[in-house]
């Protein structure tokens, strides 16, 4: 309690160790209680790098409830170069308004990066999600710049092997599977300390039965 007067005399811009700084642009609820309670949801206006340990462990599904919420907005949800067909019956069942979803395919990595950047800059997307396995550091910086100060959910998925590569993204999310549980590690997030092992254990179960 004695530290209280000292804290109040410190200038506002001095970082206070453990204290978590909230994302100025807000968060979109992730739809998972564990995530929403610990980190408020997915941050807006901050680029997220999502690294799945492998394909098919619900790595895309972690964003779906947030996308469902964002699709109520009049803006687009832009999916750039998804590896397979984003299956409309699934999205629709999860409450995503598929009329807001646009899918783009690009011939090369530059076009894919350009697509994401246009989406982020355009002010007409509520979410821009890309699958660009060979994304470059330069491209990430461009995307972050385009996203800065915009109320947009921006994320890209990388290949499982890029876990060890240190990309300049403000947020990194690792999705892994352990004993029928999907776990999320956040080794890096702007304004906060790393978190590991957030369990969204019943994710697969929930996907099986649909969200309430």
């Amino acid at each position: 309690m004695e530290s209280a007067p000292l804290q109040s005399t410190l200038p506002a811009h001095i970082w206070r160790g453990k204290e978590h700084k909230l994302n100025p642009l807000g968060y979109v609820p992730s739809g998972f209680t564990n995530i929403d309670e610990r980190i408020h949801g997915w941050p807006l206006g901050t680029l997220m790098e999502i690294v799945p340990h492998q394909i098919g462990i619900g790595e895309f599904s972690i964003l779906i409830p947030a996308l469902a919420r964002l699709s109520q907005d009049s803006r687009w949800i832009l999916l750039v170069c998804p590896p397979h067909i984003p299956y409309a019956p699934f999205l629709s069942r999860m409450g995503v308004d598929t009329s807001k979803v646009i899918i783009t395919h690009a011939q090369n990595i530059n076009d894919a990066g350009w697509c994401m950047e246009q989406g982020l800059r355009s002010n007409s997307c509520s979410a821009v999600i890309g699958w660009i396995p060979q994304i470059t550091e330069k491209m990430i910086r461009r995307l972050q710049l385009a996203l800065e100060a915009k109320k947009v959910l921006g994320a890209f998925f990388t290949k499982p092997m890029t876990i060890y590569k240190n990309n300049p993204t403000p947020w990194r999310i690792i999705v892994r599977q352990a004993d029928n549980e999907t776990l999320i590690d956040i080794p890096k997030r702007r304004g906060g300390s790393p978190i590991s092992g957030i369990s969204i254990s019943n994710l697969l179960h929930q996907t099986c039965c649909g969200f309430a």
Partner: peptide, 25 residues
Amino acid sequence: NELSRGHLIDQLQARLGEKSVYGIT
């Protein structure tokens, strides 16, 4: 918003081709 929504589609289609930008249903 309505204008820029349409403009984004036009812009993407201009670069990637009409068939590479679509919605799903």
